[in-house]
Amino acid sequence: MAQHKVNYTQDGGLPVALTSIDKVVNWGRSNSLWALTYGLACCGIEMMAAGASRYDFDRYGTIFRASPRQSDLMIVAGTLTKKHAEFIKRLYDQMTEPRWVISMGSCANTGGMFNTYATVQGVDRIIPVDLYLPGCAPRPETLQYGVMLLQKKIRANKAGNAQKPKRLM
């Protein structure tokens, strides 16, 4: 059995870290980004691959949740069609603040190659987006890079101030 030995003679002698509220809160927020599974199309498969064995998303603290109430991050992975648009708004409204949105892939960014009657030309017409990932479909590495940049963005926030609710309008 492994023994946990704490060296009390180092780092000020006690297992205590002094910091500010901002840092602690942002540390917690940025490293437990629970994502809502929002796999709509092809990008959803890459999102799953990012969560699966080789790319192991859990080490970022990003765990896929099936319920909007439990998640902080919505990864819109795939084509959003006009028939589906109302549901993404509904689910986004159900997520608790603070919440972030990653638009993954060309279809979610701008409609991509599906320049047709049935697709929404960019998910930012429906909900506010924090990060756009290019690619069709973006590799899992791209998604991981995106999440790391989002963590950085979260760390830049002031945790003490109430988060300004993001609204499209």
Binding site: G78, T81, K83, H84, M113, F114, Y117, A118
Partner: peptide, 22 residues
């Protein structure tokens, strides 16, 4: 129909090789 993207309509407006990536 929640992922209906109009591929058949796209095919009618694309040359044959263009439709391949779709």
């Amino acid at each position: 129909g929640y992922l209906h993207r109009g591929m058949e309509k796209m095919a009618e407006n694309m040359i044959y090789n263009e439709f391949m990536p779709t």
